[in-house]
Design a protein around this nucleic acid. Structure first.
Lengths: 147, 147
DNA sequence: CTCAGTGCAAAGGATTTGCATGCCG
DNA sequence: CGGCATGCAAATCCTTTGCACTGAG
């Protein structure tokens, strides 16, 4: 999704919650877009130092509420944020157990479909209403292996 | 795994780290074993009030370090703990987006194998060393649907 | 002008740690 | 006996909140 579409989409989502798409919110969204994976607060602030920590926290909460951003927590003590799935592509996470960084990856459509079906079956059996799934691969990233 | 095997296994793991399998550590392990899913600190303390909060935190850290316990974080602000995978069966988590509770579930062996293979392929392509994977199903549990 | 959005600093809450005591080996 | 494990309470650190200020409409 190119910037313009993305901005329009996010603006729309925010309007639905009577929120404006302000400059700093736009900045946060753009940082997330260019991340290549979910980012921590530290990473976001480092990427754009015109942003104030408390405002970023507040804006991320608002963006999450509007459905534009998803907050995830992995092994370490920092929450990470990424653009909501419908603003990107369905993907999964590769978590480095050494440095803690998180990268995106995707499965072939065929595999993904098979997985969906298997999960639906399980959920049906347990009486669960499925809202989505997340699949994390835990391992050591390239950088940490060479280091 | 029955209690005796489990205790022996955990004791062994702790010995490997020069740690004792004390009474309160044993209590924590047994609470986790009967959980049916990963438990929060609150749930653990509620299950056995002879346990002191700080000691449970400390013991869980030690047990995790010894490879007997795994710490996971979901959507809410509480960490959850479960017995390490090699002490139980490979399984996945069903997270209720309403009450936050987490339950275990398993996939058919065939599905699990296919998934493993797909993940291995992806990891190889990205130069990652795989240590494991986790699959969470997000939805609404039976209790929350009727409520 | 008005009111949502912002930034600073102070508060909040799950988790961790210092220290004196108790208990296992 | 000696040292690790425990429990209490105080400290930590990410995150949230109170409040006064700023800027868009």
């Amino acid at each position: 999704m190119v910037d313009l579409e993305l901005d329009a989409e996010v603006a729309e989502l925010l309007r639905g919650k009577d929120q404006r798409y302000t400059t700093s919110r736009r900045r946060v969204v753009h940082v997330l877009q260019s991340g290549g994976g979910p980012l921590t607060m530290m990473q976001i602030l480092a990427e754009d130092d015109s942003l104030a920590q408390s405002s970023v926290y507040r804006n991320l909460t608002i963006l999450e509420d509007a459905g534009a951003v998803t907050r995830i927590v992995t092994r370490d003590d920092f929450a990470r944020y990424e653009l909501a799935e419908h603003l990107t592509e369905h993907h999964h996470h590769l978590i480095c157990s050494s440095c803690g960084d998180v990268l995106d990856f995707s499965l072939e459509a065929k595999t993904e479909t098979a997985l969906d079906k298997a999960l639906d079956d399980v959920a049906k059996k347990l009486g669960f209403t499925v809202e989505g799934h997340s699949l994390d691969l835990l391992g050591v990233c390239v950088d940490c292996q060479t280091a």
